[in-house]
Design a protein around this nucleic acid. Structure first.
Length: 202
DNA sequence: CATAGGATCGCCT
DNA sequence: GGCGATCCTATGT
């Protein structure tokens, strides 16, 4: 089991990274305990030229500032007033790309996840959907701008698992209809048929 | 200062 | 399939 270093996330091809992240493991270790899950669905947001990206046109605000950091930091924002959506910043400094983690397959710390989610069964619904997984892992807007490494409580790891090409699905992102032509870009990656994947999964 | 709307979810019919 | 929850951010006056 290897820790993914910030250098990995400074890769300059965010679409490649979004696909490569499938199968990687997202870990949090906060006061309530240790929780982790395998990434089964991601979405790439491609910086200043992507209408669906919060940093479109170089928009720079207190909220989006972490996106301008070099790859390897967390970008977490509040959606619909309720959901804390977790993204990983990629690319180099001042290239505000990020990858939204949309779903995990829960692996460890199910008891803690169930408490946080107020659920009673340790099934895929614990971490299906970007708002759900963030809640299950205790991720919050206060973590936006945090460097992803074990000493900060949030990090990524890999155990060497890979998937054949025909198991990986790719298509338009969810819920970005406002983005005009960019809404149709194939920036979403997922494991076909995986029970953790939200919406269309074939 | 006021206001509209969102990278969602869960419950209802 | 529809809708309400809930609040921060961005934008406009």
């Amino acid at each position: 089991m290897d820790i993914l270093t910030p250098e990995y996330f400074r890769h300059e091809d965010t679409l490649w990274l979004a696909k490569d992240l499938l199968g990687k493991i997202l870990v949090t270790r906060f006061t309530e305990g240790f929780t982790c899950g395998r990434i089964v669905e991601t979405e790439a947001y491609l910086g200043q030229t992507d209408r669906a990206c919060h940093a479109y046109g170089g928009r720079r605000t207190a909220r989006t500032e972490p996106m301008y950091l070099p790859g390897g930091y967390a970008y977490v924002y509040l959606c619909y007033g309720i959901h804390h959506l977790f993204n990983i910043v990629t690319h180099r400094q001042d290239m505000p790309h990020a990858i939204l983690i949309r779903a995990l397959e829960p692996l460890m710390g199910m008891d803690v996840m169930m408490q946080r989610r107020k659920k009673h069964k340790p099934d895929a619904s614990l971490t299906r959907g970007p708002g759900s997984l963030s809640k299950a892992l205790g991720l919050h807007t206060r973590h936006s701008g945090t460097l992803l490494k074990p000493s900060c409580g949030i990090y990524l790891a890999e155990d060497g698992i890979t998937y054949p090409e025909n198991l990986i699905g790719c298509g338009p992102r969810i819920g970005v209809d406002y983005a005009g032509e960019d809404a149709r870009l194939a920036c979403r990656f997922y494991l076909r048929g995986n029970p953790g994947v939200s919406k269309p999964n074939l």
